[in-house]
């Protein structure tokens, strides 16, 4: 650090910011990578089928692949519009 640096304002700790951003984006990447390639397509087609009967938003359908013990579990969550009689979740 030179003499002049002493008078400059102290910079923020950007390394910490980098670390936080990386941890979030990498965690997200790992989840996507873990899933089978057909997952996005499956999600799109399911949405189309559901929309034939009920009008739902694209982001009202959530498809996730997880593990429970030895099993892989494909979990689908559909949030139906309020006045519908159908039950949510499958």
């Amino acid at each position: 650090m030179g003499l002049l640096d002493l008078f400059r304002s102290k910079q923020k700790n950007t390394a910490n910011l980098a670390k936080q951003r990386l941890q979030i984006i990498i965690a997200q990447g790992r989840v996507e990578r873990g899933g089978p390639d057909y997952l996005p397509m499956l999600k799109r087609e399911l949405l189309e089928v559901i929309r034939k009967y009920v009008h739902v938003d694209p982001d009202a359908v959530e498809v996730n692949l997880g593990t429970e013990g030895d099993h892989e579990v494909l979990e689908m969550n559909v949030v139906l519009p309020e006045r519908s009689n159908g039950s949510a979740g499958a």
Partner: peptide, 16 residues
């Protein structure tokens, strides 16, 4: 630069 907080440290990268 790591000491100054400008660069990811070895520990950071190992952790990530």
């Amino acid at each position: 630069r790591v000491a100054d907080g400008d660069m990811l440290s070895l520990k950071d990268v190992e952790e990530i």
